[in-house]
Amino acid sequence: MARPVVKKEFSLSDRVYLIEIIKGLGLTWKHFLFNFRACFRPGPHTVPTCWQYPEDLREIAPIFRGAHMLLLDEKGREKCVGCGMCARACPAKCITVKRGKVQEGEEGKYAGKTYCAEFKIDMLRCIFCGFCEEACPKGAIVLGQEYELAEYTPEKCLYDKARLLANYEKAKSEGKLKPARKPVPVEAPPPKAAPKSKPKAAAKKVKEKEGTKQA
């Protein structure tokens, strides 16, 4: 709904403008004093409108997609079986997986019969979409909460398996592991109920059904 334009006439104090300037100076002085006192206070979040980054951090949602990690199960064995589904699902094609058969003496380290001999993620190509996490049949790769991923050389941004396992250890020690995603239960479609509407509408519906059946 449109509001009519009210043409505001300038009062004398507006026209002189010096008075308005002085009023404006008072307003900015209040802001200045407030922030001046705030910057002397210790502790995080002293200035409410400006969060100083390394000291004031934002709260991350639990489903935030940060850096990847390879999970261990309750017995401490690597969950990843090296199937390569994550590499297949990745839209940016940044994951490289090589499967290896578990040897006789190494049963305790791996959960399955095969393991990933080589697992590389190129973080510079990764788009953090989370498809690898959704595609993994074992729930072995998860995107964690780590977002401070800057490095000094590009070589350090190619994560290998050791780095990914280390990410898991770090997240576990900081308590930032998110709970496993439970599968969403899919409801059975409701059975086709008999039309309870008026006879005319019912006749129309029967005609439509017949029409679609024929088509």
Partner: peptide
């Protein structure tokens, strides 16, 4: 600094 403090942020610190 003055600009920052007036504008509800801190200047270079």
């Amino acid at each position: 600094r003055g600009a920052g403090l007036i504008q509800d942020r801190l200047g270079p610190n």
